[in-house]
Design a binder for these strands. Structure first.
Lengths: 330, 330
DNA sequence: CTCGCCGTCTTGAACGATCCAAATTGGATA
DNA sequence: TATCCAATTTGGATCGTTCAAGACGGCGAG
């Protein structure tokens, strides 16, 4: 077992003081080039690595960011978080930060988790996913001056804090545009009940695209909770109207999957487009709107590190564009 | 902004020494009940939380465990890791540990990551997933006396280190048994090329179940890489033989999905069973072998904390039983 | 020539917890 | 009352790093 190598070991080996070694690591420009090299060689030779615990105790910073891992609800959207997490971890590592996970079954517990993580582990920042109207979490964090970024817009005040989001309206708009280009006129929409920022945004994209094409969207959409069974039911409902749609855009792949069940035997076939490009969509050949999750995660880290590494003003938010992945359902 | 509350603040408030506060937290039995309560009240009143950094510096332990987050390969198996991670984080929190993520694109980099995590963050332990024959990672960790558990058996020496696994052979055996009970006799198997512990295990379960029923499995299985297209190809190959199977068990949901494509129009229908019970399986109604991932994660944490909290001898490995989730493909 | 300044490097103290050895307490015993 | 022992409690040292302040030599300006 090798002896533990500390900054003092390196200092002795390079015949300088502890502080000089510290400076080489944290403020290289104030050290003479020759000395710097000597110290660097000693570091490499001894395989020295700064103890985060000691550094953290002195500076109060941990180089740790936290992100919540949610229980996968219906399972289909699980892989979204998965890809996001991977991107986040990878980009954070490149920026010298590590990623810590936590769970929380409701908002109150989540805030308690913040408190614990901050006071026990001195976390530097948080990445929140899935914000909603009047989210108490962002208020709590902002009040205490904790650095954080949300993946998802603050639906109340776009200037409230740094955020990264994917332009859902553009996504459904693009999907609708694609269907229009294929000659569809009566294009339906299956979405969630009004009130969720994300859901309203996606619905708006579809509505505006239809309006722009001179089509009245009235009566062509349905509101329902997320889920395959719910999607199927709403789609049947839509098909039973006087002027049933010949194509439908959905707010999620779950709904789209349900819609697919409902139109299975339809002739001529009804086109279906989902949202999120989950593995399920890929497996069943469902055309879907794909979010650039890797990019989104990377931008989250960028914003967070910008705040942490001293930028005073909150960095500009980032709105990414989704793309339409064409498969054989539309 | 509230003042930082340290162990000294609590000590002053409860009119005891710092060490007594420390004892209340770490060795309550040596403190008089009355004193203990007074200190506990002070802790609660002040909202004190021990600084992990300071504790870690003194004790060398961080109460942190690390797990690798993999890039989701074909996407379908992504959610497996997802559910596992959630269970891991939740159980670890209950045991007073936090979970840290890291990425690594190959084994050499992964070992470099261990080195970094250990020397910079003083990680207490690792959870490895997906072990294979002659895995250099376990050797590296064992050599340095680092605590770790694998989710997946050590295929070379079952006593090498603590592990948790799901009995894949029992899973495919159960699936085969179910098909036999439904009257199928020629039951095929789609699996991966020989050499992977997991794959060989799953194939063996099917083979033994057939043998036990007095059926010769020869010629009824195929070896292929994982993937939907690969599954479809292998299934067509199997159907083109003199005595095509009337049912097939697959080593993964990806292969099963491919098989489903291949037998779509078959009459009488060919039964298909997948493995892993992924969201895709649920979505398309594929009968599949389900792994108790939450349990597995919890047991991983149990074993790891047992090692960390002083148990000298390596705790007994855990082999969990999968279950068959019946849907309409079998 | 002296002063002050700059660039470079060094020394002592501090972060907040635990370990260790020593001191105090209270009660039982001589 | 003095003594001893066990149960509690205490104070100082320590982990490895960075901060703050100071030391040193050389150089240009006054």
């Amino acid at each position: 077992m090798a002896e533990k190598v500390t900054i003092a070991t390196v200092a002795r080996h390079a015949r300088v003081s502890r502080q000089t070694v510290s400076n080489v690591l944290n403020a290289p420009h104030i050290v003479r080039e020759e000395t710097r090299q000597r110290v660097q060689e000693a570091i490499a030779a001894l395989g020295y690595r700064a103890s985060q615990a000691a550094r953290q105790m002195r500076t109060g910073r941990s180089r740790l960011i936290a992100v919540r891992i949610e229980p996968t609800r219906d399972g289909i959207n699980g892989s979204v978080l998965d890809r996001f997490l991977h991107g986040l971890t990878e980009t954070a590592e490149a920026a010298g930060y590590r990623t810590m996970l936590y769970t929380a079954s409701d908002t109150a517990r989540e805030i308690a988790a913040y408190d614990d993580l901050l006071s026990a582990y001195d976390l530097d920042g948080f990445v929140l996913t899935g914000t909603h109207h009047g989210d108490p979490r962002t208020a709590w964090l902002a009040e205490r001056g904790v650095a954080f970024v949300t993946f998802g817009r603050p639906w109340d005040d776009p200037e409230a804090h740094p955020w990264v989001d994917v332009d859902g309206a553009a996504g459904t708009g693009r999907a609708t545009g694609h269907l229009l280009a294929r000659g569809h006129r009566r294009i339906g929409f299956l979405g969630w009940p009004a009130g969720s920022g994300v859901g309203d945004d996606r619905r708006a994209g579809w509505r505006e695209a239809l309006r722009a094409a001179g089509i009245d969207p009235t009566g062509l959409d349905r509101e329902t909770e997320d889920g395959i069974a719910e999607g199927e039911r709403s789609m049947r409902d839509l098909l039973a109207t006087d002027a049933p749609p010949t194509a439908v855009v959905c707010a999620s792949d779950s709904l789209a999957l349900g819609a697919l069940q409902a139109v299975r035997a339809a002739d001529p076939p009804v086109a279906v487009v989902g949202f999120d490009d989950t593995p399920v969509a890929a497996a069943v050949g469902l055309t879907s709107v794909s979010q650039p999750l890797g990019d989104a995660a990377a931008r989250c880290v960028d914003l967070l590190t910008a705040v942490l590494d001293g930028d005073q003003q909150t960095p500009a938010p980032v709105l990414l564009q989704p793309s339409l992945v064409l498969r054989h359902t539309a």
